[in-house]
């Protein structure tokens, strides 16, 4: 088995190695193409300036054919791997969450997380791996080869996103805010609740992506972060599958919404049908009294 790995960040190496081990390919020859320094875990590393859309197409003739093309499910890697798969006409399956050696099948979610579909694993195949699902490490010291490739698209400039360094994926308790909040200042109530409970504040996509009220590391959903703590309190969130399916692994879900028909109640253990502006102040006060804070 010859495996080519495309990487745009070091933080995904463990996901990739975890997948390779789960798939039973630990003895495979591992070649990486990366724009970051990778000093361990591969037989060979091609260092490139950027994981541009056509990087694998341009490198292809240089590095030859592989049985399996792997990448983390990051935006740049999805693009470059799909573009390469398209140029070769090979099948691609993205955001793979599981591999069963016995059945030779790979799994991914569909229907915004509400369904699971399996595919037969065949070679050659391209796969992007859901992050946070696999963990592993393979020890190898790579030969590093620097490549000078000029991409077909021209990078004009970059802008760093603002991140608060919040890790909601590993938080025990998350208080989620959605479009039920009418102003950014009103989120203070949620922050206070999170503080009283010892948790973090997360949000629905519009709060981060449309309104920019919160940083993207608080964005919960299939295109944001998955959470897996013991408590999620969703406030003023309708419960679109793209949001709530990312909380499937949470032990207890509480929903606070003024619309009794909001889909979020179907996904909740405990529901409160109330206006958050009336309920939250009362809830906070009672909670503080009960917990003695």
């Amino acid at each position: 088995m010859k495996v080519l790995v495309l990487l745009d960040s070091n933080k995904y190496v463990s996901d990739i190695h975890g997948f390779i081990m789960k798939a039973g390919f630990s003895d495979a020859s591992l070649v990486a193409v990366s724009n970051v320094e990778v000093s361990e875990g591969f037989d060979k590393v091609y260092r490139v300036g950027d994981v541009s859309s056509d990087i694998l197409v341009k490198l292809g003739s240089e590095i030859g054919d592989f049985d399996l093309y792997l990448a983390p499910h990051s935006k740049k890697c999805i693009e470059a791997l799909s573009f390469y798969a398209g140029s070769r006409g090979i099948p691609i399956v993205t955001e793979v969450t599981d591999f069963s050696i016995d059945e030779g099948r790979i799994y991914r979610n569909i229907l915004s997380g509400r369904g699971l579909v399996s595919y037969k694993f065949t070679t050659p195949m391209a796969i992007t791996i859901a992050t946070g699902k696999f963990k592993g490490s393979i020890s190898k010291t790579p030969e590093i080869i620097n490549m000078d490739i000029s991409p077909s698209t021209q990078l004009l400039s970059t802008e760093e996103k603002a991140f608060g360094g919040v890790d909601i994926e590993n938080a025990d308790i998350v208080v989620g805010v959605g479009r039920g909040f009418k102003a950014k200042e009103d989120l203070d109530m949620a922050f206070e609740l999170a503080k009283v409970l010892g948790g973090e504040v997360g949000c629905s996509r519009p709060i981060a992506a449309d309104y920019h009220w919160l940083d993207e590391d608080r964005w919960i959903g299939i295109s944001g972060k998955k959470i897996r703590g013991k408590l999620y309190i969703a406030i003023g969130i309708s419960g679109a599958p793209q949001h709530i399916m990312a909380a499937n692994d949470v032990k207890v879900i509480v929903a606070i919404n003024k619309d009794k028909n909001a889909p979020i109640f179907e996904y909740a253990d405990y529901g409160v049908v109330a206006d958050l502006y009336q309920f939250l102040p009362v809830f906070l006060e009672r909670l503080k009294t009960r917990l003695g804070v």
Binding site: I78, F83, I92, T94, I110, S112, I222
Partner: peptide
């Protein structure tokens, strides 16, 4: 919305 694979645009481009 159903497959959420994000592969179609780059695959088609190629």
């Amino acid at each position: 919305t159903d497959m959420t694979s994000s592969t179609l645009a780059p695959y088609l481009a190629a």
